[in-house]
Amino acid sequence: MLMTKYHPDTRFITDYAAGSLPFSQALCVSAHLHYCDDCRHKVEQLSSLGSFMFDELEAQQNDADAMEQSFNELMSRIDDLPEARFVAKSQAANDNRTQRLPSALHKLTRGDLDSLQWHSIGKYFSYSDLDIGDKARETSLFSIKAGGNVPRHRHKGDEITVVLKGSFSDQDDHYQAGDFIVRTRGEMHTPVAAQDEDCLCLSTLDAPIQMTNWFYRLLMPFIKASAQSSRV
């Protein structure tokens, strides 16, 4: 099976299970879970913990009449729903785990990476912005061709990268599908994809607005600025 070495730490897993992790970072954790049994178990345990505390909340109880009225309103709303609203069971199934992209990315790409708009930087590197509605962060897929490298760069904000397919190396280690890698501000590295396979990754970067100037973009062209006009 897959040998995932790098996992989200307790902070990420807990915030994810509690539902408080920012959307783009939660997307990264969910991508990791696609590959990692251990972390799925942890999330289920922490969700149980959350539900125990939820069970202990002081119920916002109304009197019986109000409850009955509220229930009747709910049922008439339910009766008005079209039959199609019933969620297909297969939607919950996660077959071909190893074949497919994590389900959220499968949905975003409609199962076809080529349906996204890709931008190439040089011979080896391309990226595609994902607009998932988290305006505080830059989220994208990027691809490094087999044997190719990403230009040396310094991180200006905290960045999470999850390897989805293939593998890459930098001066520290070798990263494979499922690995969840956190780089903090100021770290330098030069990722190189393995020789035998293209490497596809998901990444999200804390992108404070003041960094999105032309100087920054020229220095680090592949970390695109959040305020790119096409998106506004």
Binding site: G19, R40, E44
Partner: peptide, 26 residues
């Protein structure tokens, strides 16, 4: 657009029920 349930599964796809969900664990 993605909604929360695309990112946070209703139930994790684990095979066995963790002891944490069992009767006396709560």
């Amino acid at each position: 657009a993605l909604s929360a349930e695309d990112i946070w599964a209703d139930q994790q796809d684990n095979d066995v029920l963790e002891s944490v969900s069992e009767e006396h664990e709560q």
